[in-house]
Simulated assay, not measured.
Amino acid sequence: MAEHVSRHPFRAERLAVRGQQLQILHWGDPAEATDAVPLTVMVHGWMDVAASYQFLVDALRAQPGWGARPLLALDWRGFGGSYLASGPAPDGDYAYVDYLADLDAVLDRVSPGRAVNLIGHSMGGNVVMLYAGARPGRIRRLVNLEGVGLPVAAPEEAPRRLAAWLDGLKAPVALKDYDSVAAVAARLRQNNPRLTPERAQWLAGHWAHEAGGRWHINADPAHKRPGPHLYRLEEVLATWRAITAPTLVVEGADTAVYQFFNGRHTRDDFLQRVAVLQNATHRVLPDAGHMLHHDQPEQLAAWLADFLG
């Protein structure tokens, strides 16, 4: 199968951060960022990797004025190159507070004292919204790609959630492995039929690695376990209200993300949450699903170039 050829390959680096070896991908040199041309930082979603942004980066580089701007993507702890370097979480748990603290520490290293443009997809979109409320002075422009949040959790759910988490820690958990990189690519296209075969083949080589004659997903299987933490909407909205950066919220017109919530969280719920933002622009990307940066990278890049300035 033919494979996508990246017009602007990344350079990978690992940073020692909070007991982890976190992988960052560079397109350009972060040290060349200025107040006028800030660093743009991208973070990925659940069960994804930083290399997932390559197609969007190639499209951004084609935008006027974006041929050499410094770009960076982070592999969250437990995912991608960060997982390959650091292994599983010692306690078997991953919490949003750890992602926030990791992001804060990484930004201190790659953009000390200077605000950044911050882009997050899906789980990463939820994280960057919380981070921008907690650290408003660190963000110049904020982009939320399909970070729709989670269903409201009632306090009464806490005992059941904690029990499920405790039970999960005792149960073995594993991710499916594959006999070839082509099989990994087929899985990616099963998840998202809009992903072209060429892009799926390229991404599969970054989404998984070969060991012992099998291809294994670059993610800690512990991500499949239920977490102990409730989603407290009041706290989330209070943090969103503290965001001062101009914010672009982008949805895929054909997203299926709400199907996973079985009616407990709807698009109307999400739009009501977006309404609390001080300075937000909301756009819907045609002919795109949840993985909108894979489905329509050129159109999304045009919108980002215009919004980020």
Rank of each mutant, 00 (worst) to 15 (best):
252 G>Q: 02
230 L>W: 09
269 D>Q: 13
168 G>C: 03
14 R>I: 00
175 L>Q: 11
7 R>Y: 01
77 R>E: 08
49 V>A: 03
128 V>A: 04
27 W>L: 08
14 R>S: 06
248 L>N: 04
104 D>C: 03
41 V>E: 02
107 L>H: 07
244 T>Q: 15
207 W>N: 02
14 R>H: 11
114 R>L: 11
49 V>E: 01
46 W>G: 00
124 G>P: 15
179 D>C: 11
226 P>L: 05
102 D>G: 05
122 S>Y: 06
263 G>Q: 06
223 H>R: 08
137 G>K: 06
278 Q>N: 14
59 A>N: 09
40 T>Y: 00
126 N>V: 15
296 Q>A: 04
40 T>F: 03
98 D>W: 08
56 L>S: 06
52 S>A: 15
245 A>L: 12
22 L>F: 04
214 R>Q: 00
276 V>H: 10
173 V>F: 02
112 P>E: 09
90 P>S: 08
188 L>M: 09
28 G>V: 06
117 N>P: 02
11 R>F: 04
238 A>G: 14
115 A>P: 12
50 A>Y: 01
74 L>S: 00
232 R>L: 14
124 G>F: 05
225 R>L: 09
76 W>E: 00
171 A>E: 13
213 G>I: 11
295 D>W: 11
173 V>N: 07
89 A>C: 08
68 A>Y: 05
274 V>N: 12
52 S>I: 08
78 G>A: 09
253 A>T: 10
209 H>V: 05
165 W>P: 01
98 D>Q: 11
103 L>W: 04
274 V>Y: 13
248 L>D: 09
84 L>M: 14
289 G>M: 02
177 D>K: 07
156 E>A: 15
258 Y>R: 04
185 A>R: 03
180 S>F: 06
205 G>H: 14
148 V>L: 07
169 L>M: 08
132 A>T: 11
57 V>H: 10
70 P>M: 03
68 A>G: 06
62 A>L: 10
129 M>Y: 10
51 A>Y: 08
281 T>L: 13
277 L>Q: 06
175 L>D: 11
64 P>G: 06
307 F>I: 10
84 L>H: 07
